[in-house]
Amino acid sequence: MFGFFSKLKTNANRKRLKDEKFAFLFDADTSGEVVVFDTETTGLDVSKDEILSIGAVKIKDNKILTSQTFEVFLQNSKEISSASIKIHGIRPVDLKNAKTTKEGIEEFLHFVGARPLVGYYLEFDVGMINRYTKEMLGITLPNQMIEVSEIYFDKTISLIPQGNIDLRFDTILKNCGVPNMGVHNAVNDAIMTAMIYLKLTQGKK
């Protein structure tokens, strides 16, 4: 799965790791689990915006381990704009007990370990996390990435070869018959994404 080129990249990444405590991120994964995660941010600009919360769940075989749900809120340097509050529903008071970004990100890394990461539009969420890890540890997330919209696309395109495939989250949710769990927040979205993932990978082939 990992080509020669990506191996090179990983090795270069590994060399930049400043803190050996996090060497486990580069271990071979033996857990048999994957981690689905989602973030809520102050905006969509990876270079400027900040993470407000991270939600994640593990999947093992056909089960979403909601018993080990991960959820963290992070302190922010700027005020949260009222426009973005409308989207993520996180108000300044919700961040009263938030952790420092350092603490929060470290906890997240421990939760994830070397497991593959699963998400919807993962590029963005990983990009957000990478900005923090680069600063803290000198590295980007080395984990294998699995994009659900890609799996969805591959499955659907075989049915309608010339069609335009609608990859919006709500559409995928609906077409996969996954219940909408209500409000959008990091954990809920992670759980819903996890359900989509299971449906796409565990369903009748």
Binding site: N62, K63, L65
Partner: peptide, 12 residues
Amino acid sequence: LMQKIDIAYYPS
């Protein structure tokens, strides 16, 4: 209880 509940998926 909430600490012990998992979600599972089973195809038909």
